[in-house]
């Protein structure tokens, strides 16, 4: 739509975009940077608005490139900001599928309040969907095709007692080895409490 001249490149604007790209790879919240980006968008928009008014007055076409540039900058900022937020949501989704519906304290620290709410909401959505089947169905189990009914696991940390479906009670102490049905261990393996021993 707009052609913008490359000569007017404001280094202040470019800096923020680089930072945003880095953050997309990181789940640690850098909300100040996000706010900075949003500020930029607003500032750019204001400037464009001013420029448009100015144009209306002066009909000076030389300000077009700058407007076009700012517009592109705006759009790009919006896209990057939303992409950053969306990727964080994707990571949160992974957390829900791998670790379950509760958030551990260290993950909670890295999240903002709306994200925690989104997580709980997503958990609820998922649970509603899973319950819509007769007897409910747990889709977060059976992630991998089962190789054998029983597996050997090593306990990496004290975890107290585990009760099996068959009624047996297993005491999970650090540095002990157990041979258990694989369906009962799946959750604990994902949480990192048990380690699957492959022979």
């Amino acid at each position: 739509m707009f052609d913008y001249s490359r000569s007017c490149c404001d280094t202040y604007h470019c800096g923020s975009i680089h930072k945003i790209r880095e953050l997309i790879l990181n789940i640690i919240s850098q909300s100040e940077d996000l706010r900075a980006v949003l500020e930029e968008i607003n500032v750019a928009f204001q400037e464009n608005h001013q420029a448009a008014l100015q144009y209306q007055e002066t009909r000076d076409k030389t300000i077009f490139p700058m407007i076009g540039y700012r517009h592109a900058l705006l759009q790009r900022n919006v896209r990057c900001a939303l992409a950053y937020l969306y990727n964080r949501l994707l990571k949160l989704k992974e957390v829900r599928w791998h670790l379950g519906p509760t958030l551990s304290a260290d993950v909670k620290e890295a999240l903002t309040e709306p994200e925690i709410q989104w997580f709980n909401n997503y958990s609820k959505l998922l649970a509603n969907y899973m319950m819509s089947y007769p007897n409910g169905i747990n889709l977060t189990a059976n992630i991998k095709p089962p190789k054998s009914l029983y597996i050997e696991v090593k306990c990496l940390a004290d975890h107290g007692k585990l009760e099996l479906e068959s009624g047996e009670v297993i005491l999970l102490q650090k540095d002990s080895i157990h041979y258990l049905p694989s369906s009962e261990c799946e959750q604990l393996i994902r949480q990192g409490i048990l380690e699957h021993i492959i022979n």
Partner: peptide
């Protein structure tokens, strides 16, 4: 809603 809350409501 999440996008709205965190980003979109701050911009034009």
């Amino acid at each position: 809603r999440h996008f709205q809350l965190l980003a979109l409501r701050h911009i034009p």
